[in-house]
Design a protein around this nucleic acid. Structure first.
Lengths: 209, 209
DNA sequence: ACTTTTATTGTCCAGTTGGATAACAGTGGC
DNA sequence: GCCACTGTTATCCAACTGGACAATAAAAGT
């Protein structure tokens, strides 16, 4: 009677449903029954795929970020160095950052989440380092220490995202202005050059969620 | 038989206990029974002071930040402009930022928390603006738009705090290096001047908790 | 001394939680 | 066609939750 899905399909379905719920209710607020209801199955089934609730949320975060970073990387490679840098630094959709902010808050209490978070943060730094090096190699910008610059600019982007998404103190335009302005100053770019290179609202992030 | 405390004393006790627990278990993870146990009373008593759990955590956050900002303001006034700026921007203790990061993640779901968070974030910006203006008035630094500079530097400090406290990717020294370095560049200060002006580890924040 | 107030307790409740477990039902190997 | 496998369901459970409530005892007012 019941349509039966393959293991991989179902697992993927559960992970995506979990992530959708985490974005609105937070890691701590998502229950197995929530996820089961979102998928349309019995809550016991979740346990068939994930050993514990902590495993589930950590896997959901891990899968989602892995997928997103791969998609972002591919998207950025097709752009000019300056446009790619601007695209990476500009504001990302709300549900994206809501999950990251929740992860920051939960990581100290959930080792599996902490591991995933640490790895993906370093991935993000790596991507930014590469972008900076591309701009420097193109002779447009200067950077004595791309790793240090990436670390600082990642901090700016995260802090601005908090002001924008968590507190709604600034809008998306001001968020971009601050982050891109900081990058221009830090990398010796002409003021406004990054803002102008900013590609069309490539809000492709997490489109697959 | 039982020693009976005044309303204000008890309320304060509850608020501080709540905050201590929030720092380790997060806003969503603190239960009325946890708080009651920490204070050493029955959980019903908490309800006598706070109408609901949400009221409790919002009041705890609000009270704590109000107290801390007042203490910080007093402490900063006694310092030279440069030292005050460095002191404000340098890393703050873990339990302090753990609460803020949790507040960022919970605010979108808890209106009372969102209100308190919004107000206190603006307070923090205001403090930094004043500090910047003091340094500018002293002829040490330049700032075309203190408000914009404060907003950007607050973002850096928050983002660095995440990397330091939530992810443990950087240590306290590197955290200070990044934030103070960013401020030096932004405000046209000589490189290293803020780091040198950095007062002795004035880790007085939240000492009263 | 008495009454009023209120800080504090102990207990109850209905709802929700994560997890365990046994039965059931498609699916693929042989 | 049979069987092992595993995706799936339906319950059960002990623990915990926020909140409600009446009873108690200490303080304050008079």
């Amino acid at each position: 009677m019941a349509e039966r899905k393959t293991s991989d399909e179902r697992r993927d379905e559960i992970v995506r449903a979990t992530l959708r719920l985490v974005a609105t209710k937070g890691f701590a607020g998502v229950t197995l029954r929530d996820v089961a209801a979102e998928v349309g199955v019995v809550h016991g089934l979740i346990r068939h795929y994930f050993a514990s609730r902590d495993d589930l949320v950590a896997a959901a975060f891990d899968d989602a970020v892995t997928r997103e970073l791969a998609s972002d990387r591919a998207q950025l490679e097709g752009l000019e160095p300056l446009a790619a840098l601007a695209g990476w630094l500009s504001a990302t959709p709300e549900h994206h950052y809501r999950v990251w902010i929740d992860a920051w808050s939960e990581a100290p209490r959930t080792p599996a989440l902490a591991t995933a978070l640490d790895r993906h943060h370093r991935d993000c730094e790596r991507i930014l380092i590469d972008l900076i090096e591309r701009v420097v190699d193109a002779g447009i910008a200067t950077s004595a220490d791309p790793a240090a610059d990436a670390r600082m600019l990642t901090a700016v982007a995260d802090g601005v995202a908090v002001q924008h998404h968590a507190m709604d103190i600034i809008g998306v335009d001001e968020a971009d202005t601050i982050v891109l302005g900081a990058a221009e100053q830090r990398l010796g770019l002409a003021p406004g050059s990054l803002a102008r290179a900013h590609p069309a609202p490539a809000r492709g992030h997490w489109a697959a969620v």
